[in-house]
Amino acid sequence: MRLANPFRTLLRRPSQGRRRWGDLAFRGIVTIGAGAVVGVLVAILWILWTGSSQSRAAFGLGIVTNPTWDITTNVFGLLPMIDGTLLTSAIALVLAVPIALGSSIFLTQLAPKALPSALKAALAQVVDLLAAIPSIVYGFWGLFVLVPYMRTTVDPGLRSAYDRLGNLVAPTVHAVSPGASAWAGTHSPFTGTIIGEDVLSASIVLAIMVIPTVAAISRDALAAVPIPQREAALALGATNWEATRRAVLPYARSGIFGASILGLGRALGETMAVTLVIGNGLAPPTSLFNSGSTLASLIATQFSESTGPLEYSVIIEAGLILLLITLGVNIVARAILWRFQSPGGAGGD
């Protein structure tokens, strides 16, 4: 496409011919680059799609609601892993976002007198460093430090706290709704044998891994809020917290949301660390103290020892489903970001 350019005659140089070749080459290279990105995604989808054809033929869409994984009868349902993936990621996000947001508010909004800027920069560096730790290291830490501690201290503590709280509020809940009371009595999230290698441990490790991502990006979003927005609130007599809550956080909300979604994306696909601490149970978890699997940990543990072409194919389908979940999360997030775009587009993502 060639548009009339009023400066064309002014800018004409003797090397016109060479310039056109340069342009052509440039355009070719960037087009290949752009095409390659799309091509890789399509190729991955294609390979996962064809590789899982046997599985799809055998189980159809029902595979996502089938809770049974039984090698002896060749029944492979992916519900436990989908459950495990969504549950651990959701808990991780719930644990990580407040902490990450707290750290980024601390670093961007606290009065300068309270925190010298050199210390601030150092703290920000530490947060960024956490993101660079390889996931296997988090996994080892989880296995050797977190899991034993969960088993001996945290898990029993949580269970007794839940029971005590339950006994405390049970009469009230029962009075309001006997049904809810009965349901809560039989649906404690803290039942089962405490082994330490469980859904809760995996969620906590994931949370720790997600914190630096969410913290670093939400920090950028908060730092991008124009200072006059904050000053407007302070000048009206707002306290530091009020200015942050009413002026700064709303302005940065889409950036913070984007940060959380990126964190979620990381949690959904995390493999090594989860595999080491989740216990790799193949039944659907009914308690946070049950062992479980995620789609990613299933692939890591079962792929190399799959017993036949059908299981092999099912594991490829697990990869397909994981890819679709992460794509879906990103598409939904993007749609939400478009709807609630921050003013001036700042901190978009």
């Binding site: 006059p228 609130a233 000048a235 007599g237």
Partner: peptide, 16 residues
């Protein structure tokens, strides 16, 4: 600051 109001150089209404 509640007793002494301020108007800034550039308009800075709360954008949200």
């Amino acid at each position: 600051r509640r007793r002494i109001g301020m108007v800034f150089q550039r308009p800075n209404p709360f954008a949200t």
